[in-house]
Simulated assay, not measured.
Amino acid sequence: MTNTALILIDVQRGFDAAGFWGPRNNPGAEANIKALLDAWRERRLPVVMVHHDSPKPDSPLRPGQEGNDFKPELDGARPDLVFGKKVNSAFLGDVDLDAWLKTRGITSFVLAGIQTNFCCETTARMGGNLGYDVTLALDATYTFDLAGPDGAVLTADELARATATNLHGGGFAAVKSTKDVLAGLR
């Protein structure tokens, strides 16, 4: 497991703005994110923390705003790498994540964070395409209800199930629970 990084995607205070995002799922996500972080730190495994720097003027994730800060669960994290991005994939951020991982001999990573169906799924898909062994800790992610082009709303739980199906069925990533990921570290 020494070549397995934990990549925490957009675990930011701005996602607590329920009035902006709407209903979310998985209220236990932050506790699972913290459990993964604690396990990685305890074993001195590589940790990457990514934050979304939204260019949208009304976004709670704009740089310089409190919402751009990491959530308290990441306090004291001491990550090996921290960087920002303006798009969904962490592979298209302010740092060349692929090069950083390869330089360190990292061939696999576990993903957790926000939002399940956007930044987590996109990063998992790109990681799979780049040849990494990717695991998504599904219960260490969450998302929000979302309306489709026809106005029909899919619940956050439905979107999370769709992400799990896309990643598993497409061979992009293994989808596991935090408990199963932690059991694999032993």
Score class of each variant (00 low, 15 high):
residue 77 A to M: 04
residue 78 R to Y: 12
residue 79 P to W: 08
residue 79 P to L: 07
residue 83 F to Y: 08
residue 83 F to W: 03
residue 85 K to L: 04
residue 86 K to T: 15
residue 86 K to Q: 14
residue 87 V to F: 02
residue 88 N to P: 15
residue 88 N to K: 14
residue 89 S to T: 14
residue 92 L to H: 02
residue 93 G to F: 02
residue 97 L to S: 03
residue 99 A to L: 14
residue 102 K to Y: 03
residue 102 K to N: 05
residue 103 T to H: 08
residue 105 G to L: 05
residue 107 T to M: 08
residue 108 S to Y: 11
residue 108 S to D: 04
residue 111 L to N: 02
residue 112 A to F: 04
residue 114 I to Q: 05
residue 115 Q to L: 15
residue 116 T to V: 13
residue 117 N to S: 14
residue 120 C to W: 05
residue 121 E to M: 10
residue 122 T to K: 10
residue 129 N to C: 08
residue 129 N to G: 14
residue 130 L to Y: 09
residue 131 G to S: 05
residue 131 G to A: 09
residue 132 Y to E: 00
residue 133 D to M: 04
residue 135 T to C: 09
residue 139 D to S: 08
residue 140 A to K: 08
residue 140 A to P: 09
residue 140 A to M: 06
residue 143 T to W: 03
residue 144 F to Y: 07
residue 146 L to A: 08
residue 148 G to S: 12
residue 149 P to S: 11
residue 149 P to F: 05
residue 152 A to S: 10
residue 155 T to P: 07
residue 156 A to C: 06
residue 156 A to N: 07
residue 157 D to P: 02
residue 157 D to R: 11
residue 158 E to K: 11
residue 158 E to L: 13
residue 159 L to E: 10
residue 159 L to I: 04
residue 160 A to H: 10
residue 162 A to D: 07
residue 163 T to F: 03
residue 164 A to L: 04
residue 165 T to R: 13
residue 167 L to K: 02
residue 170 G to F: 02
residue 176 K to D: 07
residue 176 K to Y: 10
residue 176 K to E: 01
residue 177 S to Y: 04
